[in-house]
Amino acid sequence: MNHGTTHSSGAADVLLTSSVFGAPCWVSLTSRDLNATQDFYGAVLGWQWRGARLGDRFRTALVDGVPVAGIAGLASMWQMAVAWTPYFAVTDADQAVSRVRERGATVAVGPISFPPGRAALVADRDGAAFGIWQGELVTEWEAWRQAALTFISLHTRDAFDAAIFYGEILDWASGLPGCCEVDYAADQVLLRSQGDIVARIESGSVEAPPDPSVRPHWQIHFTVADVGPCIRAAEKHGGSLLDEGEHQAVLRDPDGAQFTVTSRRQR
Rank of each mutant, 00 (worst) to 15 (best):
N2S: 15
H3N: 10
G4C: 06
H7P: 00
H7V: 15
G10H: 06
V14G: 09
L15W: 14
L16C: 08
L16K: 07
S19C: 00
F21W: 04
G22K: 06
S28Y: 06
L29I: 12
N35Q: 11
N35E: 13
Q38P: 02
D39N: 13
D39A: 15
D39Q: 15
F40D: 05
Y41C: 12
A43S: 14
L45M: 12
W49A: 04
G51A: 09
D56K: 09
D56A: 14
D56L: 06
R57L: 15
F58P: 14
A61E: 05
D64T: 12
V66K: 04
V68D: 07
G70K: 05
G70C: 04
G70T: 06
I71N: 06
A72P: 03
A72Q: 09
G73M: 14
L74N: 06
S76Y: 06
M77A: 15
W78A: 11
M80I: 14
W84L: 05
P86N: 07
D92E: 01
D92I: 00
A93Q: 01
D94T: 00
Q95F: 01
Q95W: 02
V97D: 01
R99K: 13
R101F: 02
R101N: 02
E102R: 03
E102V: 01
G110K: 00
I112K: 06
S113Y: 09
F114M: 09
F114G: 02
F114K: 09
A120E: 07
D126K: 01
G127C: 03
G127A: 01
A128G: 08
G131A: 12
E136C: 04
L137Y: 03
T139D: 13
E140N: 08
E140A: 11
Q146V: 09
Q146Y: 05
T150D: 13
L154Y: 06
L154I: 08
L154W: 07
H155D: 15
A159W: 02
A163Q: 10
F165P: 03
Y166S: 08
Y166V: 07
Y166W: 07
E168F: 00
E168H: 02
L170S: 02
L170A: 01
D171W: 04
D171K: 11
A173N: 15
A173Y: 00
S174M: 05
L176N: 11
L176M: 12
P177K: 03
Y184P: 00
Y184S: 05
V189F: 10
L190I: 07
S193K: 02
Q194K: 09
Q194A: 14
G195E: 03
I201F: 05
E202H: 12
A208D: 14
P209E: 00
D211C: 02
W218K: 08
I220L: 15
A225N: 15
D226K: 01
D226T: 04
D226E: 11
C230T: 11
C230M: 01
H237G: 02
H237T: 11
H237S: 04
G238L: 08
G239W: 03
L241T: 00
L242R: 12
E246Y: 03
E246G: 00
H247L: 15
H247Q: 14
A249L: 10
A249E: 02
A249M: 07
V250E: 14
D255P: 01
G256N: 10
Q258Y: 11
T260G: 08
V261M: 13
V261R: 09
R265A: 15
Q266A: 15
Q266D: 15
